[in-house]
Design a protein around this nucleic acid. Sequence first.
RNA 1: GCCGAGGUAGCUCAGUGGUAGAGCGCGGCCCUGAAAAGGCCGGCGUGGGGGGUCCGAUUCCCUCCCUCGGCA
Length: 305
Amino acid sequence: MKDKIIFLVGPTAVGKTEIAVSLARKINAEIISCDSMQVYKKMDIITSKPARALRKLIPHHLIDVLSPIREYNVSRYRKDALKKIKAVLKKGKVPLFVGGTGLYMSILIDGIFEAKTENPSIRKKLYKVAEDNGSAYLYNRLARLDSEVALKIHPNDTRRIVRALEVYETTGKPISQFQKQRKGLIDKYVVSIFCLHMERDKLNQRIHRRLEQMFRQGLIEEVRSLLKLKLSKTAHCAIGIKELKGFFCGAYDLENAKKLMRRNTQLYAKRQLTWFRKDKRINWVEINEKEKPKEIAMRIWKKLC
RNA sequence: GCCGAGGUAGCUCAGUGGUAGAGCGCGGCCCUGAAAAGGCCGGCGUGGGGGGUCCGAUUCCCUCCCUCGGCA
């Protein structure tokens, strides 16, 4: 008898947090975050972490696990998450993944190769080459070494070109070969995925309202003190960091900083939805604003039975 | 009221006597160690209204309306 694992995903600001807690109580679950930014300590308001009260009600894992000066990535997330699944199952509870990071979800469900292929100094060198000679130069090099992956990567996509070459240089093998080795949860467990969804206009309104709320909660102070640290590349990507940085250094006023945050969050939500849409295993849960989190959780629970 | 500048995409604007582009926005998509990242594709338009010249006007001319500066 396979154990059950549930994913509750959806675009930013759709209202995952409360629904998740409601659902977790109903099915005796513990929540495991599936979010690339909530792993960071000290980034509470900016990442809209679940409130303390909610976290007391139901244990939340993989939130606040490392300092924002540290790098984090999919591979580490996968290792951390696999451990948490085992721990939660051991307690006789259901692992309930909640979050909006599509890549993290897909890497868990479908897997990723385990070979150690990271090499920061090689990577750094490759970026330098790209900067000096253009990404087309690197792309041509990649096309000779690993034509299979080159077909999938656009010549302008420096990040993926560099990554593929990094793998080649550190292992002597093409990344396309590694990419065929994936083992995911889907074989070992019964996986159900639910994606919350609402009309785009409504979602954008929610994004706007949540942004205002974040500022009321003290976003400015939080970001100001984060900027005193040497933030990792990853943590630095959180929406709100660079936007407020511009405000702090006087490049534009607060209203403009807010506008930028709003726009970037909306673009982010759009990309998230593209990601989820292509996963045909997802059960879509259409929600409207009037419905209470508890009622939505109830609807999901019914679909589970 | 007079003088000047201007009305072109949701916004800011470019351009041309052969029915229009750019950036941003918006929409769609891709994604295997930065993923809240990175990349790709799509013009979404009654060219302020009306009239005239011309084979043909968004472009030239007239007129009206509107906006912004300056003078009253």
